[in-house]
Simulated assay, not measured.
Amino acid sequence: MNKIMSDKKVIALYVLPALTLILVLIYIPIFLTGYYGLMDWDGIGKMTFIGLENYKNLITDRLFWNSAYHSLLLAIFSVLSLIIYLAISVVLAGKIKGADLFRKIYLIPMLLSSVAIAQLWMRIYHPSNGVMNRFLTSIGIENPPLWLADTNIVLYAIFIPILWQYAGFYILIYYAALKNIPNELVEAAQIDGATPLQIAYKIKLPLISGVIKVTIVLAVIGSLKYFDLIYVMTDGGPNGASEVMASYMYKLAFRTNDFGYGSAIGFFLLVLILITTYFIRKLTSSKEDEVQY
């Protein structure tokens, strides 16, 4: 067996299917996206090479930069929400009654499709029959807001279901990391008189710092390319107030048939995600090797 596995031809044969899938599903589409971004193309007819003209238009496109700003806001809110998820995970990882039940409840949004979640929250935000406005009316607010029709609040109204949708995912990651910390370390700190808050801040968080860094990257990348819930709930409206980069790219490519410009935005988004990931890793890197669990 060792002789067979030391044969480079056999190793290449085992690796080839995975490399083929990666090439077909990832690298070739990336190359084609960059190629189409250099073209004037409606997706069906003849392509015309225009060089960097699409990227020049992108720089001066006010609608695109508005959508980029909305994506940036979502990324900021997503990273800040990690603090809440981490706090919940610390509590659930402790010896409290009902921890298993709460953990299962937090996982429920992960089991629902984005369309189902969008439909649920559209009914919650309904101006007359929604739970939100019925509650506000019951406490004396006569003119509750039109959550998905007010350009000033629609973006933040959508952020709530988005963050709710992924709460279980991040809580599960943090919970697993916290439960993997040896009990001996926590017990030693308790013997030394450390409070639960000190144990969480001085012991648990440093030991799972690597996991926290990964979730920050996931939250930022996911926010920059987010699309589905916003598309179903508002379609980027009203008047572009909830438009994000991915939804704007979709509209250009599949509604106005400007595949060249849409591909340019898609390629720009890819480069932006790579650069953002690089800087996040640099900012969160440590000169000293840390013990991770």
Rank of each mutant, 00 (worst) to 15 (best):
I28V: 12
Y35D: 10
N66S: 15
I88W: 02
F49S: 06
Q198Y: 06
K287G: 15
I160N: 02
H70P: 01
G210N: 08
S247N: 14
G130T: 07
K287P: 03
S114E: 13
F169A: 02
I108M: 13
Y201K: 12
A176C: 06
L107N: 05
Y231D: 09
E187H: 04
V15K: 11
P161K: 00
L229A: 04
Q190D: 07
L80T: 07
G237Y: 01
L63H: 10
L23F: 15
L92S: 07
T151M: 13
T215Q: 08
D7E: 14
L92V: 09
F77M: 15
L163R: 02
A18H: 11
A177F: 01
L38N: 05
P196E: 04
L155A: 03
L73Q: 15
Y85P: 02
I153N: 00
L72Q: 05
P206H: 08
L16D: 08
T195N: 07
L218D: 11
L163Y: 00
H126L: 13
G140P: 02
K287S: 12
Y261D: 00
M39D: 09
S128M: 15
A167S: 11
G240S: 06
Y35S: 12
V10F: 15
S113E: 15
P161E: 01
I275P: 07
M132E: 07
I117W: 06
I203E: 06
L252P: 02
Q198G: 05
K213H: 10
P182A: 06
